[in-house]
């Protein structure tokens, strides 16, 4: 797959190069030759494209698992916060009520801190302080970005829960479902469906946010491009390539979200 790609690159470059040479030299030919040399020097020579490819792999790995962790955390925190609101006057004073209040306070603290500080600072705190003894940069990044994303996911899901008509809740309860089962069978499925596009957008944001992974020395896509730049002393090619790759990924996922939104809207009719 990779070798095919680089063969294709080489082929395209050779073809276009020939065309440029045939049109005599001139400014176009000069520019072309420079770009070609730049390209070869930055990506082909010493297999430097591997930095981008491996970096992309890391970016995907971190994003994917951080998103999973974020959704898990988000659902839990959203449930705690909305349960605290909804159950306030139903619960009798007792252990469970105190427990819920404690968890609710912790959740609020979590949301405030995570949303009130830059993700790159959180990442550095995670790597250099909290997990200072760990060498697993990927895992630390997954944890840091996952915990960060969870705060945003929590608010998305909570808004989804709050958007569900109170009548749904009452219908569940009146059938005899307890609070938790009403949530699981009736409220959460509808809430998630309502916020699916917003969740997908959060995923897209996360892809871009992982670009600060280089701060803890993790070689993601951005860092990969930066390494190439530091080796070849040319900024243009590697940075533009990195930007282009992010752009393609984001456009791809945005298209998916649009499709998803259309599907959901149709199923509502």
């Amino acid at each position: 797959m990779i070798s095919i790609l680089s063969n294709v690159y080489a082929g395209v470059i050779a073809l276009a190069g020939e065309a440029a040479e045939q049109s005599s030299s001139g400014w176009f030919g000069d520019l072309w030759n420079k770009l070609r040399d730049d390209f070869i020097n930055n990506f082909i020579a010493k297999d430097r494209y591997q930095y981008l490819l491996k970096g992309l792999g890391v970016t995907f790995e971190v994003t994917f698992f951080a998103a999973l962790l974020g959704i898990l955390l988000g659902i839990i925190v959203a449930l705690i916060r909305s349960s605290h609101d909804k159950l306030a006057d139903e619960l009798r004073p007792g252990f469970f009520k105190v427990l819920l209040a404690v968890f609710n306070a912790l959740s609020n603290l979590y949301l405030t801190v995570v949303r009130g500080t830059p993700v790159v600072v959180q990442l550095m705190i995670a790597y250099f302080i909290i997990f200072a003894t760990s060498n697993n940069k990927v895992l630390v990044a997954i944890l840091a970005f996952g915990i960060n994303s969870g705060a945003y996911v929590a608010e998305i899901i909570r808004s989804g829960i709050m958007s569900i008509d109170i009548g749904q809740f009452e219908a569940g309860r009146s059938l005899g479902f307890g609070y938790i089962r009403t949530m699981i069978y009736i409220i959460i499925p509808q809430a998630i469906k309502n916020v699916l596009p917003a969740l997908a957008n959060e995923f897209i944001v996360l892809i871009k946010e992982t670009s600060v992974s280089g701060y803890v020395g993790l070689q993601d896509l951005t860092k990969g491009g930066d390494i190439i730049r530091s080796r070849t002393y040319s900024a243009f090619m590697p940075l533009i390539a990195v930007a282009a790759i992010y752009l393609v990924i984001v456009i791809f996922f945005s298209k998916l979200v649009t499709l998803l939104e259309r599907r959901l809207r149709n199923s509502d009719r």
């Binding site: 008509d165 749904q168 009452e170 219908a171 309860r173 009146s174 059938l175 005899g176 479902f177 509808q190």
Partner: peptide, 17 residues
């Protein structure tokens, strides 16, 4: 919850799922 199973309720706005 046990007792509510024995009391059916019908709402003005249906509240179907």
């Amino acid at each position: 919850n046990k007792l509510r199973q024995k009391m059916g309720m019908v709402f003005q706005h249906f509240n179907l799922f």
